[in-house]
Computed example of a mutant assay.
Amino acid sequence: MLIEFTKMHGLGNDFVVIDAIRQQIDLTAEKIRFIADRHFGVGCDQLLMVEYALHSDADFRYRIFNADGSEVAQCGNGARCFARFIRDKKLSYKDNILVDTHAGQLLLTFDDDGLITVNMGVPRHKPALIPLNTEQEEKFYTVKVGDVEKAFGAVSMGNPHAVLQVMDVKLAEVEEVGAALENHVCFPERANIGFMQLIDRNKIKLRVYERGAGETLACGSGACAAVVIGIEQGVLANDVLVELPGGPLKIHWQGRNHPVFMTGPAVSVFEGSIEL
Rank of each mutant, 00 (worst) to 15 (best):
M1C: 04
I3P: 12
F5P: 15
N13W: 04
N13D: 06
F15A: 05
V16S: 05
I21Q: 01
R22A: 11
Q23Y: 08
Q24F: 14
I25G: 08
T28R: 03
R33T: 14
I35H: 05
A36V: 13
A36H: 08
R38S: 10
R38E: 02
D45Y: 08
S56V: 10
S56T: 09
F60H: 04
Y62C: 01
N66Q: 01
V72L: 03
A73L: 08
N77I: 14
A79Y: 01
A79G: 12
C81I: 13
C81L: 08
F82A: 09
F85Y: 10
D88W: 02
D88V: 13
Y93Q: 10
K94I: 15
I97T: 12
V99L: 07
V99S: 08
T101L: 11
L108N: 09
F110E: 05
D113N: 03
T117M: 00
M120T: 11
G121T: 08
P123M: 03
P123Y: 00
H125R: 01
P127V: 02
L129N: 09
P131W: 01
T134C: 07
E135G: 14
E138G: 12
E138V: 13
K139L: 07
K144E: 09
V145Q: 05
E149M: 15
A154S: 07
A154L: 03
V155S: 01
V155A: 02
N159Y: 06
P160A: 01
P160S: 06
L164Q: 12
L164D: 06
L164I: 15
Q165N: 15
V166M: 00
L171W: 06
V174Y: 02
E176S: 14
G178A: 03
L181A: 12
V185N: 10
V185H: 07
P188T: 07
R190G: 13
A191K: 03
A191H: 06
N192V: 13
I193W: 07
G194D: 04
I199F: 13
I204R: 02
L206K: 03
V208K: 06
E210W: 09
A213D: 03
L217M: 00
G220N: 01
C224L: 03
C224E: 02
A225Y: 00
V228H: 02
I229L: 07
G230W: 06
E232V: 15
Q233S: 12
G234W: 05
V235G: 13
A237M: 10
N238A: 15
N238R: 14
V240Q: 02
L241G: 12
L241I: 15
L241K: 05
L244K: 01
G246Q: 01
L249E: 02
L249I: 09
K250T: 09
K250C: 09
I251Q: 01
H252G: 07
H252Y: 00
H252E: 06
N257D: 03
N257I: 09
H258I: 04
V260A: 00
M262R: 04
T263R: 05
E271R: 11
E271M: 13
G272V: 10
I274M: 02
I274N: 06
I274D: 04
E275W: 04
E275K: 05
